Simulated assay, not measured.
Amino acid sequence: MAPLTVFALVVAVLAVSSSAPLIAFASAPALAIAFWRNGLASVALTPVALGPRRGEVRDAIRGSRRRAGMFCLLAGLALAAHFGTWMPSVQLGTVATSTALVATQPVWQGLIAAWQGRRPSAAGWTGIALAVAGAAWATGADVGVSGQAVLADVLAVLGAIFAAIYTALGEQARAALSTTTYTWICYGVCAVVLAAVCVTGGIPLHGYDGRTWAAILALVAGAQLLGHSMFNYALEHTSATTVSVLILLEVPGAALLAWLWLGQTPRAGALPGLGLLLAGVAVTILGAARANRRAGAPALAD
């Protein structure tokens, strides 16, 4: 890879690794943080969405691309469910376990593909089995800690499932819409849903101290905008498989930051399960990439 691509990937991994520690650090309800994270990101994209992309946005709302716009709406709902489950898990449990469990998204993605008729390969099923076993091991280690730790694990797994649904819906929307239009609509819908939940539940959206606002702004600039932008840039110069595997570095990166910054030492009993889980996710990703290459081989030969 070119030095600039390597630099982009390093920046992206560092940016997304800061997400969970910043959520744990902020003295604000998780759902409120999720609202501001998506709302401010949507505001940042507005000049482009309502400028050069205005025609595309109009088509997605009431024009020829309304079907894609509907997928954007559904993806925004799934994204709200993802943030509404995973972000509370970070505050209830440990950064290391919550980040590792939400990283099982590719496993659930494979099961969604199987439900759609695109069955995973043998390697994919092996990876799914390893990841599920690792998640069970890590969660079982938390049973002896507290009921709150187990709840955090369950919420993190639900966050991974909703992230997979969000990605599957986004795949349908992206077939007809640009990244900017899709993310602007999706983030906006997610923010509106989370705002409604916060207002209904009496969750305060303001009145935080300076360090909490700094953490929220760092989340928006880092994980939400910079991290994903750098990954998207790298996708133009390297394979999606490489990027997907490198994203797994978020797990040890977040654990290291939580240890250095928050004093959260990963529980020894959960570490073997987390290692098995990550190995399973990596095998799932690599198996899916190999199956895609084989499926594409005849078309290339023609």
Rank of each mutant, 00 (worst) to 15 (best):
C72S: 10
L111Y: 08
L4R: 15
A49I: 00
A8R: 07
T241I: 00
P52H: 12
S19C: 15
A218G: 13
A175H: 04
F71T: 01
A234H: 09
V6I: 14
H82K: 02
I247E: 13
Q148P: 00
S146H: 05
L278A: 01
P29I: 07
P266R: 10
G201T: 01
R211F: 04
H82S: 03
P266Y: 12
A149W: 04
Y208E: 15
L249N: 02
A28Y: 12
T99L: 02
I203L: 04
G263C: 14
L177C: 06
A80F: 09
C190V: 04
L130R: 02
G253Q: 11
V150Q: 08
L248M: 14
A8L: 06
D302W: 01
A299C: 04
A15G: 00
V157C: 11
I285T: 05
I165E: 13
L249K: 06
V143A: 01
P52N: 14
F83R: 00
V11F: 04
G51I: 04
G280R: 12
A141S: 05
R119S: 14
P204A: 06
I185R: 03
W125I: 10
T99M: 08
R37D: 07
W108D: 09
V13M: 11
T241W: 02
L246M: 09
G296R: 15
L219E: 12
T181N: 03
A122P: 00
E236D: 14
I61T: 04
L217P: 06
V199M: 10
A173S: 10
R174V: 09
V245H: 07
L155Q: 02
T104F: 05
A30I: 06
A196D: 02
A299R: 15
L194V: 03
P252D: 11
I247W: 08
A255C: 10
E171G: 15
E56W: 00
A60P: 07
G210A: 15
F35P: 09
V145T: 11
W137E: 07
N38H: 07
S27V: 06
A173F: 01
A34G: 10
A138I: 14
T242R: 13
R65Y: 00
A168I: 01
P47L: 10
A34H: 10
Q91K: 06
Y233Q: 05
G124M: 06
A135S: 12
A133G: 11
L226T: 14
A129G: 01
A168C: 03
M87D: 11
R54I: 08
G287I: 05
A163I: 05
V192S: 02
A191I: 07
V243A: 13
G51W: 11
A8V: 03
C72I: 01
P3Q: 05
A163N: 11
L300T: 00
R37M: 02
R62T: 09
M70H: 01
W137K: 13
S19K: 12
W137R: 12
V281R: 12
R62A: 14
A141G: 09
A258Q: 03
V197W: 14
T181H: 04
G253V: 11
H82M: 10
F162C: 03
A32H: 04
A156Y: 09
V243D: 06
L9N: 03
A173C: 06
T139N: 01
